[in-house]
Write a protein that binds this DNA or RNA. Structure first.
Length: 788
DNA sequence: TGAAAGATCGTTTTT
DNA sequence: CGATCTTTCA
C-alpha cells in the first residue's frame, strides 16, 4: 500500500518534509494524528530511518500508546513488520528514563542525586509542603498547600529559584512563600525526590551541563516529533531545543485554538519562538476538517471567532451539512442529567455499534449524570476522576515500597509509619521528626539512632521497633524474592489485610479488591520484566488506568480529557456562566479566552451530532437552595442558523429578564462584529512571523499569553497570578488609562473588572464586569471609576 | 493513643 | 456533598 495515496496535498507535504525543522499548524479534525503516524512510517519505510532513532512526544500516556499501536499497524498494512518501535512517550516519561539512565552527571548540580530517585506525585507534594509548614510553625491558614504549590510550580517553570522569588517579593507574604519554596526544594533534594516540574527542569539542566549526555542523545535520536505543541511549556521548549542536534530534525504539531493548558504553564510563545529558534523552519497548515458536519464546525468556529487572540485560521469542511446543533435549557441540573442520559440512550439504540460522550467542565459534575445513566440501566465509563493509583489504599502500599527502596524518602515513611495503626502516635512522630531535623539525618536514620540510644518511652519504643523490623523485613523480601511478591507480603505482615478484613464495611471490601487489582498489575509488570523502579514510575506518571479499550460505548469525561478524541455524538453539559466558563475565569479576559478554546475543543469532538445543555438552576454545594444559573455566553456566540432549541421553553429565549442577561446579549453581538472586522480587514496574523506586528498595527494590546513576561508578575491565567495579585500590573495601559483586567470601583455598582475597550482616550467605552450587577458598559470620562 | 463525632472548608482543568 | 482536619472522650 502506498503510504501517501490517502493524504491530501498539505498532509503529504508535511509527511515528506523529513529533514530540518517543521511546524504543522493543524486545525481540529484535520488529520493531524494521521499525518504524524504516516510521517513516522515514511521515515522508516521511505527514508530508511531506524525506528529507535525516532522520538515522538505526546501529551498523555494514552496518546503515546495509541500512536505506538497505530504506527505498527500502518507499517504492517504496507507490508513491513517492526521488531523495534519508535520511542513514543510523554515529556515526563521521557525525562524519567533520561534521568535514570543518563542522570549521573546531575549529581554535580544536585547533591545526593542517585538514579534511584523517587517521583513525588501531587499528594506527595502536598504532604511535603505540610511537612515544611510544620517545620516552620505555620498552618494552612497562611495559604493552602495546593495554592502554594501552584506558586512554586509557576516560579520553577519560569526559571525562578527561591532566591529569585525572594528578590522579587512584594511584601511579607511573598517573603514567606520564598522561604517555604526553598525548604520544599531542600526537602525534595534530601529525599532524592523529583516533582513533576523537576523531571523536566533537571533534564534540561542535565543536558546543558553534560555535553557528553547531549551527544549520546543526538547520536540516538535523529528525528524528533512533538504533538499538541500548543500545550508545551517553557522547559519543554528548552528540552526540545537541546534534543535536536545540529540537524534540527524536529517536527511540531499544534493548534493555538486548542491551547487549554496555560494554567499549567503552556506557553503560546513556543509556537512563535519556534521560527525564531529555527529560522529555516517550514510551516504547513492543515485546514480541512474531516471530522465534523458543516453545522457543527460552523457552531464551533462561531464561538472561537470571539477570541481576539488567535490566528484567524480558516477551517473548512467538505462533508455533510448535518443536523443542527441542539440546545436544551433544562429546569435544573437533575433534568439536565436525565436529558443527557436520554439522548445518549436513544442515539445508541438507533445506531448500534456507535458510541457517545458526555462532557462537563469539572469532575464533580459527573455524579448526577452517572445516577441518571444508572437509573436507565445504561452502561457507562468515567474517564479520569480519582485515578486508581491515587486511591488511599494503593498509595499506602506504594508508600511501603518506596520507604523500603529509598530510605531518604521521608514523605512515604510518614504516610505509613502508623498505617495500619500500630501505636505510633503524634507525639512519637514529632519526636522522630525533630530529631532528624536537628541531627540533619533522614527519618529512617533518626528511628535507628533513637532506638539504639533508648530515647523512646517504653510503649513507643515497642511500637517503633515493630515498624523498624517490618521495613527491614520488607527490604529483605525485596532482595530475595521477585519484587511483586512483596505486595502480598506487606498486606500480611503489616496487618493491612486484617485491618481491612476486620472492618467489614463495603468500602473496605472495595479497597481489598483494589489492592488485588494492584497486585495483578504488579505481577503483569514483573512478567513484562519491568523493574520495581519502573513500576513505581508508572504509578506516579500514569494518571488514569488508561482505559484505552474503553469497553463502554458511553464515556463521561471532562472537556480537558476529551482533547484529541472524537465521537459520533457529543453531549456538553453545564453551559452556564460560572460553570462553563468557569467562575474563576470570569474576571480575567485571558482566562476567558482559554475557556472559549475549551468550548471549541469540546464542540469539535463531535462528528455527527452535538447537543448542548444548560440548567436554569443548580445546587452548588450539597445543602443550600438551588442557585439560578445564567446561560453560558458561549451559547450566544453560536450562529443562530445552526442552533436549534429543543424541549419546553419556559421563556421565549434564554433571556431571564434581568438586566445582566440583556446587557450580555447586546454585548456579545458587538463583540462578534468587532472581531469579524479585525480578522478580515488588512493583515491578519495569519503567518507566525508577523504576530506581534499584527497587534502593534491594530493598536491592540498584545494578548497576555503572547507577550514576554515582565519582571515582576509574569503571565496571566497561571495559578500564581491569582494569589497575591494586586492586579495585573504587567498589562499594558489602554489610552483611557485603564488596564484590561484591572479592578475598579463604581459608586453604584461596587467593585468590577475591566473586560473590554472600545474607542480611545476619554471617550473610550469600557465594559466592566461587576460582581453584583454583571456586565455594564460605561464611558470612561463619565463613569467616575476609582481604582479598587 | 485512637476511634468517633464534630467542625470546617472549598470546590477546574492534569503530567 | 464529600474529603479532610480538629476536637473530644474513653
Amino acid at each position: 500500500m502506498d503510504l501517501l495515496a490517502s493524504l491530501n496535498p498539505r498532509q503529504r507535504e508535511a509527511v515528506l518534509h523529513t529533514e530540518g525543522p517543521l511546524l504543522i499548524l493543524a486545525g481540529a479534525g484535520s488529520g493531524k494524528t494521521r499525518v504524524l503516524i504516516h510521517r513516522i512510517a515514511h521515515l522508516i519505510q521511505g527514508v530508511g530511518a531506524t525506528p529507535e532513532s525516532i522520538l515522538a512526544v505526546t501529551f498523555t500516556n494514552k496518546a503515546a500508546g495509541e500512536m505506538r499501536s497505530r504506527v505498527s499497524s500502518t507499517l504492517e498494512d504496507s507490508g513491513m513488520a517492526l521488531e523495534r518501535s519508535p520511542f513514543v512517550s510523554t515529556f515526563h516519561s521521557f525525562c524519567v528514563r533520561l534521568l535514570r539512565r543518563y542522570g549521573a552527571p546531575l549529581a554535580d548540580l544536585r547533591p545526593g542525586f542517585t538514579s534511584s530517585f523517587t517521583i513525588f506525585d501531587e499528594a506527595d507534594q502536598v504532604a511535603a509542603v505540610k511537612s515544611v509548614y510544620r517545620e516552620i510553625g505555620i498552618d494552612e491558614k497562611f495559604m493552602k498547600a495546593r495554592a502554594l504549590l501552584s506558586a512554586v510550580s509557576h516560579s520553577k517553570n519560569h526559571g525562578k529559584t527561591p532566591q529569585d522569588f525572594y528578590e522579587s517579593a512584594e511584601g511579607p507574604q511573598d517573603d514567606k512563600i520564598a522561604v517555604i519554596f526553598e525548604k520544599y526544594q531542600a526537602l525534595l533534594q534530601s529525599s532524592n525526590a523529583f516533582d513533576f516540574d523537576d523531571l523536566l527542569l533537571e533534564s534540561v539542566r542535565l543536558l546543558k551541563h553534560s555535553e557528553q549526555t547531549r551527544a549520546s542523545l543526538h547520536e540516538r535520536f535523529r528525528y524528533l516529533m512533538i504533538d499538541e505543541y500548543q500545550d508545551t511549556n517553557r522547559p519543554q521548549y528548552e528540552l526540545m531545543k537541546l534534543l535536536t542536534g545540529a540537524a534540527h530534525n524536529v517536527c511540531v504539531v499544534g493548534d493555538e485554538d486548542q491551547s487549554i493548558y496555560s494554567w499549567r504553564g503552556a506557553d503560546i510563545r513556543n509556537i512563535l519562538d519556534f521560527e525564531k529558534g529555527f529560522p529555516e523552519a517550514s510551516v504547513v497548515r492543515l485546514e480541512q476538517n474531516y471530522r465534523s458536519t458543516k453545522r457543527i464546525l460552523a457552531a464551533a468556529s462561531g464561538v472561537v471567532a470571539n477570541n481576539l487572540d488567535r490566528k484567524g485560521k480558516n477551517l473548512w469542511a467538505d462533508g455533510e451539512e448535518g443536523s443542527p446543533v441542539l440546545f436544551y435549557h433544562a429546569p435544573d441540573s437533575d433534568a439536565e442529567a436525565r436529558y443527557a442520559a436520554r439522548c445518549v440512550d436513544r442515539h445508541l439504540t438507533e445506531n448500534p455499534g456507535k458510541n457517545a460522550a458526555i462532557l462537563y467542565r469539572a469532575n464533580s459534575q459527573s455524579r448526577q449524570i452517572e445516577e441518571a445513566l444508572r437509573r436507565i440501566n445504561r452502561d457507562y465509563k468515567v474517564v479520569g476522576g480519582v485515578s486508581f493509583y491515587q486511591r488511599a489504599e494503593v498509595k499506602d502500599i506504594l508508600a511501603y515500597l518506596k520507604s523500603a527502596t529509598s530510605s531518604a524518602n521521608a514523605i512515604s515513611l510518614m504516610r505509613i509509619i502508623n498505617t495500619p495503626a500500630r501505636g505510633i502516635g503524634r507525639t512519637t512522630v514529632e519526636q522522630i521528626e525533630n530529631h532528624a531535623r536537628r541531627a540533619g539525618i533522614s527519618m529512617w536514620e533518626a528511628i535507628e539512632q533513637m532506638l539504639s540510644e533508648g530515647r523512646f518511652p517504653a510503649r513507643a519504643r515497642a511500637a517503633v521497633a515493630v515498624f523498624h523490623r517490618l521495613i527491614g523485613g520488607l527490604r529483605k523480601q525485596l532482595s530475595d524474592e521477585p519484587w511483586y511478591e512483596a505486595i502480598p507480603w506487606i498486606m500480611d505482615e503489616s496487618g493491612y489485610r486484617s485491618m481491612l478484613e476486620s472492618d467489614g464495611s463495603i468500602e473496605a471490601a472495595g479497597r481489598l479488591e483494589n489492592i488485588n487489582e494492584f497486585i495483578n498489575a504488579a505481577a503483569d509488570a514483573y512478567r513484562r520484566s519491568e523493574s520495581l523502579d519502573e513500576f513505581l514510575d508508572q504509578a506516579a506518571l500514569v494518571a488514569d488506568t488508561d482505559q484505552l479499550d474503553s469497553s463502554s460505548p458511553v464515556l463521561l469525561m471532562t472537556l480537558h480529557s476529551a482533547k484529541g478524541l472524537e465521537f459520533p455524538l457529543v453531549v456538553m453539559t453545564g453551559l452556564e456562566e460560572g460553570i462553563f466558563p468557569h467562575g474563576r475565569s470570569l474576571e480575567d479576559p485571558a482566562a476567558l479566552e482559554e475557556e472559549r478554546r475549551l468550548c471549541y475543543v469540546g464542540m469539535t469532538r463531535a462528528r455527527e451530532q452535538l447537543i448542548l445543555i444548560a440548567a436554569r438552576a443548580r445546587r452548588r454545594f450539597g445543602g443550600g437552595s438551588p442557585e439560578l444559573m445564567m446561560p453560558s455566553r458561549f451559547l450566544k456566540e453560536i450562529p443562530r442558523d445552526v442552533l436549534q432549541s429543543v424541549g419546553q421553553q419556559v421563556s421565549p429565549s434564554w433571556n431571564t429578564g434581568d438586566g445582566y442577561s440583556l446587557d450580555l446579549q447586546a454585548e456579545q453581538h458587538e463583540v462578534r462584529e468587532t472581531v469579524q472586522r479585525r480578522l478580515y480587514d488588512g493583515p491578519t496574523y495569519n503567518s507566525v512571523e508577523n504576530l506581534s506586528g499584527f497587534f502593534a498595527k491594530k493598536n491592540l494590546p498584545v494578548p497576555a499569553n503572547l507577550r514576554r513576561p515582565a519582571q515582576a508578575k509574569p503571565r496571566s491565567g497561571a495559578p500564581a497570578q491569582r494569589m497575591p495579585a494586586g492586579g495585573p500590573a504587567w498589562r499594558a495601559r489602554h489610552t483611557s488609562g485603564y488596564r484590561l483586567g484591572e479592578k475598579v470601583r463604581h459608586s453604584k455598582y461596587g467593585v468590577g473588572t475591566v473586560m473590554k475597550f472600545e474607542g480611545d482616550g476619554d471617550d473610550t467605552k469600557l465594559t466592566v464586569h461587576f460582581r453584583s450587577a454583571g456586565l455594564k458598559k460605561l464611558v470612561a470620562k463619565f463613569a467616575g471609576l476609582q481604582p479598587a
